Amino acid sequence: MALLLSLLTVLVVLSCGLSGSVGCVLPQNHILLSNDSLVLLSQMQRISTWSCPNDTVDFRFPRGIINGIQVQEAQAISVLQGMLQHIFDLLLTDHASSAWNTTLLNQLRMGLSQQLKDLEPCLVQEMKEQGTALSSQGPTRAVERYFWGIFLYLKKKKYSDCAWEFVRVAIMRSLSSVITLQERLSDMD
């Protein structure tokens, strides 16, 4: 389902027909929104992972795509969009609504939605310059596999409170990497 939503997002963005210039400039509040999301996720903690020893999991975040070799700008935008979209999709489920404070969850969703909207012109521009092959490249696929693992884990654990707590921590790690990627993109300008 997450893949379908991501593909639909790309199609909507492509159908908008926005034209871009060389390079993509993210709004200045893009990093601030990610920092706000981290604060909200911190406030959403209901239980400790220490109280869930049977649910411990390492989702194996693909850090190499962000912290390793220099990612091209086009790949960075695609990875950034993919990460934000998958996080948004996770938090959009009914199960997420029952796991967390809905006020905080809705604020988090609104911030992520704004970030995805801000990325639309960048995606249109990169799709025009790079073509659709961008979405099937290694870094984007690694992000997709990572979040697919999280979806499967939640399903296996029947969306328990403990499972959601481990997912919350994983999302916080992902958002920290999103901030790193956003800073890298800002430095490319």
Results as ranks from 00 to 15, higher is better:
residue 22 V to G: 09
residue 149 G to V: 00
residue 186 S to I: 11
residue 160 S to N: 02
residue 119 L to K: 07
residue 4 L to N: 10
residue 102 T to N: 02
residue 135 S to C: 11
residue 33 L to D: 02
residue 39 V to Q: 11
residue 61 F to C: 08
residue 36 D to S: 11
residue 125 Q to Y: 06
residue 46 R to T: 02
residue 138 G to Q: 13
residue 84 L to Q: 13
residue 34 S to M: 07
residue 7 L to C: 08
residue 155 K to W: 12
residue 111 G to T: 04
residue 131 G to S: 09
residue 80 L to D: 03
residue 180 T to V: 12
residue 14 L to R: 07
residue 179 I to F: 05
residue 1 M to K: 06
residue 118 D to R: 09
residue 145 R to D: 12
residue 138 G to E: 13
residue 57 V to E: 00
residue 17 G to P: 04
residue 177 S to M: 14
residue 178 V to E: 01
residue 32 L to I: 08
residue 70 Q to K: 06
residue 174 S to E: 03
residue 116 L to F: 05
residue 147 F to D: 02
residue 28 Q to Y: 08
residue 78 S to C: 13
residue 136 S to H: 07
residue 133 A to N: 14
residue 134 L to S: 00
residue 165 E to A: 01
residue 55 D to F: 08
residue 120 E to A: 15
residue 148 W to Q: 13
residue 160 S to L: 01
residue 54 N to Y: 13
residue 17 G to H: 06
residue 127 M to G: 02
residue 46 R to A: 12
residue 23 G to H: 15
residue 79 V to S: 06
residue 67 N to I: 09
residue 61 F to Y: 14
residue 82 G to A: 15
residue 35 N to R: 15
residue 169 V to E: 03
residue 4 L to F: 11
residue 21 S to G: 14
residue 156 K to G: 04
residue 57 V to G: 01
residue 156 K to D: 06
residue 73 E to T: 14
residue 185 L to A: 08
residue 70 Q to I: 05
residue 183 E to W: 11
